[in-house]
Design a protein around this nucleic acid. Structure first.
Lengths: 341, 341
DNA sequence: AGTCAAAATGTAAGCGCTTACACTTTGAAT
DNA sequence: ATTCAAAGTGTAAGCGCTTACATTTTGACT
């Protein structure tokens, strides 16, 4: 069966295809009478514009592409959902691709998205080969970086200062009397958020005049198993850490599993902190002290910025959110004896 | 700047556009010599096919659309990721839309996807207005239902028997001596998976000759808060349930939060079971006894089926996975006194 | 009634690709 | 050498839409 075309609508409502096109895309440019006639005919025929033809003729697809590392853990889910909803209200569709934290794969996904003619692109973080940025700029396709922010970032970004937030968290840990701190970080290669979080922790420890010991920072992939193993390794150390700062909530959850398997208790034997404040942090026992990231607002804001950029606005904008430290039960003060509470 | 077109490639490599098109889409139909020349020219110019033009001319988009309820909890993440990866290997892109468990929104999203010319559609579950099925069939767009399976389902589906699995789980609960069972279910309206899980629980209880009490089954939206509240309500009952069977892992996590807030202990005071076996179930303390659903295999299988259907294969296929009961620590046997363990 | 800018509409040329069909070349079999 | 199917290539007609430009209609003023 053949779908009705613009021309069918035009013929049956006694106007030209141009008028139908206008009635659909910019109703103000058409008299009320024709508009209504056309709309009625569209409904009667069940006409839907052909996406490919429209894209070909107008050179726009009303599609934004996003490349995220993974959908499998919830870190990006909320933000993406919000991005999608916000774009949806403007009639723009979101195309999501995943890179599995592999820069090469990310580049390939960006190329695929460009091949599909996306009008704009959302990327996570700043760290990637310069060729992607060049490609995007050469093609004139606007993009924004999400989940990251830096004062002098040369590109539009919507996020927060991972380094400052990690530093703030660590300062709180220090304030609670911890002097023996370890960290389970995400893999920092090609991941500036992970890297900046490590830097932030280092900043705070150094500022406190404490030594920073490289072996107390373990980098692992974002999985429960890897993090649980890392926690066990850290706690096998002769001088056990009193706090394990984790690169994100998933790592914190993994660390808590590892700690539990060692027969130790959080927070009595060791404190744990997370980062991101995904739903997970509430189901953990004890609930996780973590950095709350405003995922939804970030997604919305990124959508708006992207729409602006697509509309031709072209000054680089940066949106900086201020993540909060939410203190729950997984981090407690240390007492005089060096044991916790 | 103007992007290179097929014609540019053709001109510069001294062949016709038809030959270039063939060299790109079906290399075997072109001599080795020309193929190599064309490929070199493509690389040199950085040519990428124009998606819209291709879609318009060939009437295919190499895109599959999926409508899922939400990305915000991880239930669908793994399955979708697998679906996407499998499609990706066939050069097909996945377009994901969300309905937020709203049938009306789902219908609208399907229409949007069709408007974008998707070659096939993946939907979650079977329960929806007949008009969506009609629309899909009228358009001749193949689709598969995921996360659900029924012997006499009239449409292609890739999933498992939610009812049987829920029944199996409940039988195990009964086998462990529980006689006083409550359930926190997902909202069943427009959600056959949730509904079938309730049915399965009922089946088992009825088969055991026990009374089934409607008030012991509470339907809530899939959120931690709602489930925690429901658990509290159930436990405020004069005859406390010894097990709370939850419609999925998220609800189980919420129930455990509620139970904890009541100062009770899982599983000593009350057992809890989940359904889905998402990563969450491992981070809970105690780890959750739940039904393991093979999300990844389901996604892969759905992708393969969809690709077949798009290729013209048109006999209705149903793929049934056998979910396992994984027993962890949140469900324990009841002792003689009626108290647990 | 006449004027004329503004509003509404029509005409038709593409957008970049695929593919039916026609034509040419190739090379194995005679 | 000749033949002829198979393999390779070219020609050109769309696919369904947008939009620059041309033309007609409208209606607020004289």
């Amino acid at each position: 069966m053949q779908l009705p075309t613009l021309e069918d609508v035009a013929r049956k409502s006694g106007v030209s295809t141009a008028t139908v096109s206008r009635a659909l895309n910019d109703p103000t440019r058409v008299s009320k009478k024709t508009r209504e006639r056309v709309e009625a005919m569209v409904a009667a025929l069940g006409y839907t514009p052909n996406f490919g033809a429209r894209a070909l003729a107008s050179n726009r697809t009303n599609t934004i592409g996003a490349v995220i590392p993974t959908m499998e853990n919830a870190i990006f889910a909320q933000g993406l959902q919000a991005l999608q909803e916000e774009l949806g209200e403007a009639g723009v569709t979101l195309l999501v691709a995943t890179s599995n934290y592999d820069p090469e794969k990310e580049a390939q996904q960006v190329r695929t998205l460009l091949g599909r003619g996306v009008d704009g692109v959302a990327l996570i973080g700043e760290a990637r080969g310069v060729e992607i940025y060049e490609l995007l700029e050469r093609r004139g396709v606007p993009f924004v970086l999400m989940w990251t922010w830096r004062r002098d970032c040369p590109w539009p970004c919507v996020g927060f200062d991972n380094r400052a937030a990690a530093r703030r968290l660590t300062e709180r840990v220090l304030e609670l009397g911890h002097r023996n701190i370890a960290m389970i970080a995400g893999v920092t290669h090609g991941n500036d958020r992970a890297e900046m979080r490590v830097c932030g922790v280092r900043d705070a420890i150094r500022a406190a005049g404490l030594p920073l010991e490289d072996k107390r920072i373990i980098e692992v992939e974002y999985s429960l198993d890897a993090s649980a193993a890392a926690a066990k390794r850290l706690l096998a150390h002769d001088r056990k850490p009193t706090t394990i700062i984790c690169g994100n909530d998933v790592l914190a959850a993994g660390a808590m599993i590892g700690i539990r398997e060692l027969g130790l208790n959080v927070p009595n034997d060791v404190s744990v902190t997370g980062f991101d404040d995904i739903e997970l942090s509430l189901v953990l026992d004890p609930p996780l002290t973590t950095i709350h990231v405003p995922h939804r607002r970030m997604g919305q804001s990124a959508a708006q910025l992207l729409l602006l950029l697509c509309a031709g606005e072209d000054n680089v904008t940066r949106v900086n959110f201020e993540p909060d430290l939410v203190e729950r039960k997984s981090l407690v003060a240390i007492n005089e004896g060096g044991r916790i509470r």
